[in-house]
Each structure stands twice: as structure tokens, then as C-alpha cells.
Write a protein that binds this DNA or RNA. Structure first.
Lengths: 343, 343
DNA sequence: CTGAAAGCGCTTACAG
DNA sequence: CTGAAAGCGCTTACAG
């Protein structure tokens, strides 16, 4: 059993001041470089800080200065391959800008105690809000209150004035379907859409439709189906369609993860990819370049979204002007699953 | 351009007190359920809170109460497939216990301003420290100071009294090598170890050695090589060995990610897995059950580590006694890449 | 360039 | 059950 020690009292700014023979105001000034201080005095202060191993108390600083030096990130869940690059981008940019990161997932509501708002004005200088993490009422409160916040992958509900950073979904989808049609001669392309109300999915579906239309292929609604953007639902959805005997020569899964589910279902049904059926995804997650066949997909600049969102947020915090909408470009990544480069 | 609004002043506890016609002490009591309050009075307070949309200011609360209600997580990087389940576990448990999570990566040192310690006593009630995120000096400070902290995947340097939660590396490795030898008759098993000084890797190597010894297979040091536990290094390392003409009938990659690199190198060299060479990994990352062939590996209970670590930390914070060492069991997962279930 | 003092928004003994 | 008041550890006008 680990024994419990009583912690020696942490040094405060007063201890430093005393040791250096100056006032606490002066200590504060040298620590924050917030005013000119005689070089010799400053040196004494720094020595005292060093000797006492003093660190300012964040809460006290926040309370007095009205800033927390931390950014909040609100998202539905923290795991899931999709969030990795996003987190990396946010982490990197926040750190570079000198901010800590407070992360909160909305999937595990904290029901204890009073209904405190876990991440907001009281513990954060600004908020990054991933799509569907906050309801419209809350978004509107943020917007009205003028608190710095930027939306990720979500166009703000009308009347709400918050910047968004998102990606070019429609064109990406459009191009990959074009590829299927023009290069591989596909005509009956199944589209697996994401969850209801998923904005990205909606745009990707539009891109799909536009491509068909541009090639004079009539839209067949039986070729559009739900897949939930995840492996398991996609697999089931496809298995059902296969059972029903639906005919198609390609599948455009709205997300790479769904593409894996499709692949599994196809393989189980004995249909070969890409020889019999072409398969493409969206996102270019890491596994897309590892799985077999290598997945042809649309690269979503997820890490960039994280980076950019932080930059926008920091501008907001500094009260600098900011564009309302950032749409990051996507890129077509041709690999094997569409039928290209196949051995 | 988004216009900047001036935020109306946020309501404070004084505003609530005034509106409810009570003192701020009473408001504090009903909010924190920290003393009996007349039911009728409490109701008035709650109504006032609701009407003003009041939320307590975290920093003020922290300063007055000496607790932050947040846990800190220190790790080398936030992305990387390995960290996903860990983060999920930590997130879930922290949230259930009523704590926020402050995440800080040590890979991007924040060089601006004074050398503040990003996560510590001043903004956190306790710390979760992933291996290699903090140097021994800092660990020793935490230990001496009695600040609640738990180590992840790292036995504390001697003299430092901090609990660890880690996994059963040696037995896991031992069992998977046993499997290769006993079921598949392998005799020359290549072991890819992780980075220098990586504790998990060391244990896995021991398990490997013990298994060979138990089966009277002499240790051949040319069969142990570095692989960095990551895809690219592993791939290169293997390609070199293959070039040199090293003979082996199986590869035990110390991490699943390295196993992917091995697979890529083997495939490029035209060696078939598992027909010619058996391949196994360690971790059971998500892609292990997706890649082809499906990867035989040792399941590391990474999410559990996160959950357990938070539980231990919370006990520490509550000054409850705590075991110094938690070793979570691993499990052998037989799939295809070793030669089992292969079509 | 430096200090005394007010104030940030809470919690918590201490009285009553 | 409730209130007045001190105090948490800082920052920041205001004087000098």
C-alpha cells in the first residue's frame, strides 16, 4: 500500500516576492513580461522563482486576468480512427499558440452534481465544436454572447453567426464517382450514405447525384442506402442488399470505415473486389493504404481541419476578423479497389 | 467577416443571491449540496439560477476550494492508433467519476512565455502519466510532494513511489511464441523489438526468450532485431534482413503496427504469409481483425488500462489506499497469420 | 521602475 | 437553517 504524504505547502507569489525582496506586483511583472522591470531586480526574481520551484497557480491567474490560456474541444467521442488526425491537428496548433487543451466528449453525459456546462466560458478562452456536440440553443447562446467558438464540419443553423471549418465533400464525391464511370465504365453504382442528418453525407450524396446526371445515368433510388458510416452497419446493409439480389457494378461507401464493411460482406458473398465489383470510399483513413485491395478513396484533410480551426479560433480570441467559412480541399486517391493498378 | 459583439457580463453568484433574496453563502450551499438548506429557500435559488442561466466560474471555485475537478493526462502524442482505446478508457472513467480531462502531449513543447508546467498541481487534481512523458526528476517531485499521480506502462524509477498500471507483457509474449513452436513447428522465430528502453518491449523480449528456452531452442541473437514498433521502421528492418538472406520461419513483431510493416516487406519479397512464414503481433489493434491475413496476436487491454488508471487516481485523490502495481491480463488471439484457420 | 491596494468569484469556518 | 467576512493567489489600474 502506498503511504500518503502530506504535501508541503506550495510556494505562492508572496513567497517569491519575499525571497527576492520585492512586491508581488513586481514578481507578476517579470513573470508575465507585462511591464519594464529593472534588469537586476528581474534577475533576483528569477532566482527566487528557481530556488522555490515556483509555478503560478492557474486558477488564481485566470480569476484575476479573465483568461484561461486553454482551448476547449467538444466532440461526440474521443476514440474512433476518424478523430485521430483531427486531434493531432488541434493539439499541435493549440500547443504552438500557447494554449492548453481541454477535451470533453458529449457521449458520456456527466450526471452527477449540478448541471454544469463542462466546457465553456468559465474554463476556456474559446471552443471548438465538432458537429452535433451541442444543440442549437447552446450554439445560439455562444453566438449571442460573443464567446469565441468555431464549428467543425457543421454549417451553423440559420441565425447563428459562428465560423465553420469543413471540407470539400461534394466535389470530392463528384470526382470519385466520375472516375468510376469514366475509367471503369460503371453504371450501377451503389451509394452508402451516413447517419440521418449527417451534413458531410448529404454533400457527398449530392456529389454522387451530380456525377450520375452529368453522365446521363438516371438516378435509381434503390441504389442509395443507409450504411451509418461504420463498418458493422455497412456490412449488414450490404449483406441484405446482396440477399435481395440487387444488381450493381460498384459501391461508393460514404466513409472508408463503411467501405471495410462492404468489403467484408462482398467477400463473404464470394464477390471479388475489384474484379467483379469496384469499391471506393471517402476519408483516406490510415488503413486505406494497408487493406487489401488498397482502397481508392477521397482524401479528407482531417488534420488540416484541426489546425485551421485552432487558427481561426485564436484569431477570434484576439478579436481579429475572421472568414465565416473555411472549406478545405479534398483529393482523389487512386489505388486498387476501383480496378486500377490491380494485379 | 464575422462581427465582434460585446458580451453582456456573465451573472455571478452575487446576482443569483440578490435575485433569490439570500446570501451568496446560501447559494453556494444549494449549488454544492454542502449543507442543509430550507427547501423553499433552495427552490428560490434554483429558480434564480435558471432565470439567469448562471454557471459557476470554474477558476473562482478552484481557487476557493483547492480542487479543480479535472484530471490531467500526459502523453507523448495524442494520435496514433494505440492511444485511441486508451483515451476512450480514460475519458469514460473520468467522466463517470465527475472529472474533466485536460490532455497534454509532450511532443510539442510549448516554448512561449515562462517555463510553465502545463499540467500539474495548479490546474489538476491528479495526473495520469504515460511512459516517457515526464523525466525522473519531475516524477520524483510528484512523488515527494504527495500529489496524486499514476504511471501508465511504466515501472517507476527506484525510490519513486507512484502506482503503475500496465499489462502482462511477458506471459502474453511467452504464450504466442509457444503457439508458434508447438502448433506450427516454428524453430527460427525472428523477434522485432521496440524502441530502446521501451519497457513493454523488454518484457516481451523476455517472454520470447523464455519460450525458446522452455522448448530447448537455442537463442540466436541474429534473430532479434530492432523494428521501432512502427510500420515503416519494421518494414525497412525486415527488407534489410531479407536482403542479407537471413533464414527464419516465423516473425514475432513486438507490436501489431510493426507486423504490418513486416507483412509489407514480406509481400514485396514474394514470401507468402502464413504459408511460407508465420507472422504474429502484439496489441490486437483494430486493424488486426481487418487486414489480410487476419493477424494472430496478443490482445492488450488498452482501454482497461485507461479505465483502471483513472480509478486508481481517483482513489489517490480521495486519499484511499491503493495497490502499487496493477498488471492487466493479456489474451492470445488466434487468427490466420500464424497458419491457423487459413484457407 | 516599483509598491499598496482593490478586485476577480467563489468556499468555508465562525456566529447566531 | 442562514449570513457576514475572511481568504484562495493572482493581475492591474493608480500613485509615486
Amino acid at each position: 500500500m502506498t503511504t500518503i504524504k502530506t504535501s508541503p505547502a506550495r510556494p505562492t507569489i508572496a513567497d517569491v516576492a519575499e525571497k527576492a525582496g520585492v512586491s508581488i506586483a513586481t514578481v507578476s511583472r517579470v513573470l508575465n513580461a507585462t511591464a519594464m522591470v529593472d534588469e537586476e531586480t528581474a534577475l533576483r526574481v528569477r532566482l527566487a522563482v528557481e530556488a522555490l520551484d515556483y509555478r503560478p497557480h492557474a486558477a488564481a491567474r485566470t480569476l484575476a486576468s479573465r483568461k484561461t490560456d486553454t482551448l476547449g474541444l467538444l466532440l461526440p467521442e474521443i476514440s474512433g480512427a476518424f478523430f485521430q488526425p483531427l486531434l493531432r491537428g488541434v493539439e499541435t496548433a493549440a500547443s504552438e499558440a500557447g494554449y492548453d487543451l481541454l477535451v470533453h466528449t458529449t457521449r458520456n453525459p456527466n450526471t452527477r452534481g449540478m448541471p454544469r456546462r463542462p466546457l465553456a466560458e468559465h474554463n476556456t478562452d474559446g471552443l471548438l465544436v465538432f458537429t452535433d456536440s451541442l444543440d442549437a440553443r447552446e450554439l445560439s447562446r455562444l453566438s449571442n454572447t460573443g464567446f469565441p467558438a468555431v464549428l467543425l464540419y457543421q454549417t451553423p443553423p440559420s441565425g447563428i453567426d459562428l465560423p465553420v471549418v469543413t471540407i470539400e465533400n461534394k466535389n470530392g464525391a463528384r470526382r470519385i464517382v466520375d472516375h468510376l464511370i469514366e475509367v471503369h465504365g460503371c453504371r450501377r453504382i451503389l451509394f452508402l450514405r451516413g447517419p440521418q442528418g449527417h451534413e458531410d453525407s448529404g454533400w457527398r450524396e449530392q456529389g454522387y447525384c451530380e456525377s450520375l446526371q452529368a453522365h446521363n445515368i438516371p438516378l435509381d433510388s434503390s441504389l442509395i442506402t443507409g450504411g451509418g458510416f461504420n463498418r458493422h452497419e455497412a456490412r449488414q446493409a450490404l449483406a441484405q442488399l446482396l440477399d435481395k439480389g440487387l444488381a450493381f457494378d460498384a459501391v461508393f461507401a460514404g466513409a472508408d470505415d463503411a467501405a471495410v464493411g462492404v468489403l467484408l460482406a462482398l467477400r463473404q458473398a464470394g464477390r471479388r473486389v475489384p474484379d467483379e465489383i469496384a469499391l471506393v470510399g471517402f476519408d483516406d483513413q490510415e488503413f486505406a493504404s494497408t487493406m487489401l485491395p488498397l482502397l481508392t478513396t477521397v482524401r479528407a484533410p482531417t488534420e488540416q481541419v484541426g489546425l485551421e480551426a485552432v487558427r481561426v479560433l485564436v484569431r477570434l480570441i484576439r478579436k481579429q476578423p475572421v472568414q465565416p467559412r473555411w472549406v478545405l480541399p479534398t483529393e482523389l486517391i487512386i489505388r486498387e479497389s476501383c480496378g486500377c493498378h490491380s494485379h
